[in-house]
């Protein structure tokens, strides 16, 4: 068994929350630079220019990249031989609360009916997968509400297949239009069950924007969907242009013979996530 101290986990999580909200990931920055160079619309290029300036300023001043510092979502891969005295959930939550407080990050969590703010961004949304071995990997994502609101889950009929999946995704992006802060990133979950499809869709958003899926068939599907979505011409902030979407990331899981679950998790351009390993 490997023992990992809760205090070490909390400290690392606090650092991740503060860092991820102020430093744009390098792969996202590279896409902005590419867009600033290649976007066909002048208004769109101006948006990329502002986003690059915003990223520089956030890094220098430690102001959050976006005022919506999100609900704090964690994907945890925890080895079956790992022990965290005091508990992993508590360790992550305490780190998140500290990070959001000390980093002057916005607390965006509220009661769904009274709308009263919980005051400390709790609860952290924590997904734990038990894996063989003694490693612990914690990925953090600051998930903003604007893009989350544009996300959808649907249960397609198996007969609708890939064509039905494409149609649903493209229509969803078209209907969302300027609302989710394009250029967006799409996490697509295909298969699983009603709750599993969105779980893997969101996890797919943790991938690097410029990686290529190891399965060539899925890689081709991602490229096809990206091209289809970018034909919409919505452009940066909906002002028109060729960059509506920066990347499509697909995750696939077996599903029931009766079902074709599909989840479309929309991520805004401010794709803030980091990970830490113990």
């Amino acid at each position: 068994m490997k023992e990992i101290k809760a205090a070490d986990i909390s400290a690392a999580v606090a650092r991740m929350c503060m860092s991820a909200n102020t430093k744009l990931p390098d792969d996202v920055r590279r896409k902005f630079e590419e867009g600033y160079k290649n976007e066909t619309s002048e208004a769109g290029r101006e948006i990329f220019r502002q986003l690059l300036e915003n990223a520089d300023l956030a890094f220098e001043t430690k102001l959050p990249l976006c005022q919506d510092c999100g609900l704090a979502v964690f994907y945890v891969e925890m080895g079956e031989d790992v022990v965290v005295p005091g508990g992993i959930n508590k360790a992550i939550t305490e780190g998140m609360v500290t990070g959001y407080k000390d980093g002057f990050l916005r607390k965006s969590s509220c009661d769904p009916l009274t709308r009263k703010n919980t005051g400390d961004n709790t609860p952290a949304i924590i997904h734990i997968d038990l894996v063989p071995g003694d490693r612990l990997k914690i990925s953090y994502m600051a998930k903003g509400g604007g893009s989350e609101n544009m996300s959808r889950v649907t249960m397609l009929a198996p007969s609708q297949g890939w064509e039905g999946i494409k149609k649903f995704v493209v229509t969803r992006v078209a209907e969302a239009g300027p609302n989710p802060c394009p250029p967006i990133i799409l996490g697509i979950g295909i298969g699983g069950t009603f709750e599993y499809a969105p779980k893997i869709a969101k996890k797919a958003l943790l991938r690097k924007l410029d990686d290529v899926h190891p399965d060539p068939q899925i890689a081709a599907m991602e490229a096809e969907l990206l091209a289809e979505v970018n034909k919409l011409g919505i452009g940066p902030m909906g002002l028109g242009g060729s960059y509506t979407c920066l990347a499509v990331k697909i995750a696939i899981a077996p599903c029931h013979i009766a079902s074709l679950p599909l989840a479309v998790n929309v991520q805004c351009h401010s794709a803030r996530h980091e990970e830490v390993e113990f």
Binding site: E53, N54, L57, L65, N117, C181, M237
Partner: peptide, 27 residues
């Protein structure tokens, strides 16, 4: 329309701010 996701940049144009109502709502 203001540029979404450029909150650090836009904050440079805000020279003063004070809460005038509903302080209990936080952000």
């Amino acid at each position: 329309g203001a540029t979404g996701g450029a909150g650090a940049l836009l904050s440079k144009c805000i020279t003063a701010s004070k809460v005038i109502a509903f302080d209990e709502l936080g952000p």
